[in-house]
Simulated assay, not measured.
Amino acid sequence: MFTGIIEEVGIVKSISPNGSGSTFTFSASKVLDDIETGSSISVNGCCLTAISFGKNWWTTDAVPETMNRTTLGLLHEGDSVNLERPLQTSGRFGGHIVQGHIDGTTTIQSIDLQDDESYRFAFELKPEWEQYVCHKGSIAIDGISLTVAAVSSGLFEVAVIPHTWSATNLGQKIAGGSVNIEVDILAKYVERQLSANKLTNLEVE
């Protein structure tokens, strides 16, 4: 489990075919402090497994399902990626529950600089996510824990403070680009419970 508080921005060093998937090598420093073979690391919100590592790099494999469901298949050498290690039980819970299980990708509709030097991002809101996205709710964009600032027909917006802009890869995004989305797992559990209760009530009737 992750929190969506990005620890560092890494760089894609290489991408090579591996059967029907791909092997990625990323540069990193902080997330390598306690790495072991088999460690989980979030890359742009995708939970991936370290299969090898060195002083300033680590390698992982991505299967076709991951490549197709996320933006990993769009990465090129030299691209920046958000990196985060799983939450330790003794750590602070600074963001929200992020599983590293991407729900899909969406498109950046606009990026606007605000008077207070923050940025306002607008994203496409696909119909299958509408019930999980609400004003002031949590959402993970490329693994970053963000708060939904507004929701309208087919769109949702987030406000990005200058620190998040500079400490993640958001500063390199452009309108029309794609990002990974993970909706709030708590919203999914609530929906599931309400659906189960509805079925139970129908059976009783």
Rank of each mutant, 00 (worst) to 15 (best):
A167L: 13
N169R: 08
K188C: 05
W58A: 01
A140P: 02
D79N: 10
V81G: 02
S22E: 10
I15T: 08
K173V: 04
R85D: 00
D61R: 08
V204H: 15
H96Q: 08
K126N: 06
A150Y: 07
R85C: 02
G10S: 05
Q99D: 04
N56D: 15
I108M: 06
I181M: 05
S27A: 09
G54S: 11
I15N: 02
N44Y: 06
Y189P: 05
D116L: 11
S110R: 07
E130I: 10
V179F: 07
E203D: 12
G154P: 11
E65A: 11
H76C: 12
L186F: 12
H135G: 08
I6D: 00
I144S: 01
V160N: 04
F2Q: 00
F123G: 02
D79Q: 10
K126H: 10
D61H: 12
F26D: 00
R192N: 13
Q172D: 13
I51T: 15
D115N: 12
A159V: 15
I15E: 04
N169Q: 07
Q88I: 01
V98W: 00
L32G: 00
E182M: 06
G154V: 12
E7P: 01
T60E: 06
R69K: 15
S138P: 08
L186M: 15
P86I: 00
G94W: 01
S16L: 15
H76A: 13
E128H: 09
T49F: 03
T71P: 02
D115E: 14
N180T: 08
T147V: 09
T105Y: 00
F53H: 03
G95R: 01
K55I: 12
L146V: 08
A187D: 07
I108W: 06
S27D: 03
N18A: 15
S110C: 09
E84R: 00
T147D: 05
G100R: 00
T105E: 02
V158W: 06
N18C: 14
A187Q: 07
G100W: 00
D112F: 11
V179D: 02
V160T: 06
L146F: 08
T70A: 03
W57H: 13
S14K: 13
